[in-house]
Design a protein around this nucleic acid. Structure first.
Lengths: 361, 361
DNA sequence: GAAAATTAGGAAACCGGTTGCCTTGAGAAC
DNA sequence: GTTCTCAAGGCAACCGGTTTCCTAATTTTC
């Protein structure tokens, strides 16, 4: 019985290295078995002689056979792919989140579709449709702000996990940093150092993170019967604002021995302005930042004690929750994950320059 | 003639919104036509009555039908997907590259697989196999350093474009910034300001970018019959090194009226140290950085003139070249794309504070 | 030596689309 | 009334795998 198509397989040369990738038919033909048998041999199914399996395997090796994922998807229904949508531009916060998520997913042999929606709802919906059309197994939604946002879609056919940002629908699964807890840790630390006159400089009042961190700080002080020095100074997330706010603090005449800042950039501005004004950090004024952004915290003079939101861990957690949901074990609700205090010279008088210590909390 | 499978479609409710996504069979059934006809109706093929097309389209809308990409892939051979491998961890340089690439690719209705190889050759090869198994239409390789690297694979069945980094194989397609040209622009600018005693502080001597930028600067000065003040100061890519190098320069006793720095971080360190030493920027010493990293350049006192490598444009170019190669028009070789000088106060005496001007070059 | 049990591997359906070819039916031409 | 034309749409092959079912050959059993 001659093979039906004699046209293409006249020469057996070069199929594996050149031209189109090898298919399982190529493997089967080379091994002298049927396609079904080849499939069984490669997947350890069916009942085959060991010698046959070996022959098929070596044929596959020779041709560099890699199963076509589209075909696998078509009859398993699974794509082993998840979509990751950053609702706003990929930036400093998204990177560790993505890295962490990619880490967990890669270990689970999942691939990641990257979508950058750039704060544009239309792009967001476009990407959502694209991902659904590609039948991703799940979706991770991230963003630059922790503030809750409207769900990206309702009744979606795949599980969705929100990372860093959260969904306004309490039944959605969100993973967020415990910013309030982080702020409390910062104040705790300053209090433990014996500082009692603590000021707070942070970002815009309408910014969720600024508001949460500020009120947590105030609350923690109140628990110790203390007040903030002045009101929280709301401004921008910039060094320039840090410098400016320091001027305001110094000009107000009220003494202060510590400043808790809403971001490392602000803290750095404060540090520069304090130094320019002749105040020593940490001797006269202890300083704590937020974000633990290495570029800022380490370049600051002196290096900055800061709160780390552990974004990479957050990304991993989000991915793990998504994998669980894909496997039929969803964990709806807000999952809050703790922040970590990172000690550096800006609060520790006796630490050697350049060293970094992490407090166990 | 009753339908063969009566089991599943007893109730017509909810198919579109719940359960598994609608297939073209669902659409065909609802519209009362065959699957083939439904396909033709939705794609504008074949010869059908307009009324039939409308009926099918509205059935598709009602069910929220999105064609299964795996099925499309299977018979077109194309996945409309490209892989993006960052050879080292996703970072500050990768982001604009990715954003730019994603921009061009998204416009071409391609999706992007993100792979973070973290400087690990094993991860790199793992991801490469994964991408090939998924039959991506092409691959973009990026990295943190511009230095040429060994090709990620040989005789790959899909086109590859290297962005920012380049391949040691001159037949591969690479897109790289013209760092030497950027350095020349920086020196040009300082010379145009009348500065003649220019120093250079930069990163590690063994780092490709540091070496290229330094020798281009020296060369440009030589063309004007000038020498650098002292030798290039090679160190680290950090603010601390910028401060330290400034100390060296000041201590050497040789006068200088400008410093060209290998990075914005270094430049910022230099600016801080100069100010601490009582030298005014730009009046006494003009300062040019490299990278145009907004966080550094804008927070610097005064804001920093810098060289922008236009990474987002680079990413777009890489994506465009990849798309061209996918469509059968490869453009092998190194493609060098120009840098841009961004003017700020650190070199421009009469510029209003806070404003940014871009020189046309 | 014949019937039963076991094993190895092939044939074909299926996943969800696309497309070439063929059939059907209606209107036009004679 | 019969043949020809052409539009409309159905049928089935195909893409590349997996899996179920079945057949053929071998071995076991009595």
């Amino acid at each position: 019985m001659p093979p039906r198509k004699t046209s293409e397989n006249a020469g057996s040369s070069g199929r594996g290295t050149l031209g189109r990738p090898a298919t399982i038919s190529d493997v089967a033909r080379l091994a002298g078995v049927s396609v079904g048998t080849a499939s069984k041999a490669l997947n350890g199914r069916g009942s085959l002689r060991e010698e046959t399996r070996r022959r098929v395997r070596s044929a596959a090796d020779e041709l560099g056979f890699q199963p076509n994922t589209a075909a696998l998807t078509l009859n398993s229904g699974r794509t082993y792919t998840v979509g990751m949508i950053t609702t706003d531009t990929i930036g400093r916060f998204s990177i560790p989140l993505m890295t962490g998520a990619e880490d967990s997913l890669g270990a689970g042999r999942m691939s990641v579709f990257l979508c950058d929606a750039r704060d544009d709802p239309i792009r967001e919906q476009y990407y959502l449709r694209t991902l659904l059309s590609r039948r991703v197994d799940g979706i991770i939604v991230t963003g630059r702000r922790t503030q809750a946002r409207a769900p990206i879609g309702v009744d979606l056919p795949v599980p969705v996990v929100y990372a860093f940002i959260s969904s306004t629908d309490p039944n959605d699964c969100s993973v967020v940093p415990d910013e309030a807890g982080g702020a409390r840790k910062a104040v705790d630390h300053l209090l433990a150092l014996g500082r009692r006159r603590i000021a707070h400089v942070t970002g815009p009042e309408h910014h969720h993170s600024a508001a949460v961190r500020a009120s947590a700080a105030v609350e923690r002080l109140a628990e110790s019967g203390l007040d903030l020095v002045g009101a929280p100074l709301f401004g921008e997330w910039s060094e320039a604002w840090g410098r400016q706010a320091t001027g305001i603090l110094l000009g107000a005449g009220e003494e202060f021995d510590a400043v808790f800042c809403g971001s490392d950039q602000i803290a750095r501005g404060v540090a520069d302005a304090l130094r320019a004004a002749g105040r020593r950090v940490p001797d006269d004024v202890a300083l704590v930042g937020f974000d633990n952004w290495d570029v800022m915290a380490l370049a600051c003079q002196p290096p900055l004690t800061s709160i780390d939101m552990e974004l990479e861990g957050l990304g991993r957690t989000a991915a793990d929750l998504l994998l669980a949901a894909i496997n039929g074990e969803p964990a709806p609700g807000r999952h809050v994950s703790p922040c970590r205090l990172v000690l550096r010279e800006s609060t520790a008088v006796s630490v050697l320059p350049g060293s970094t210590r992490v407090e166990q909390v």
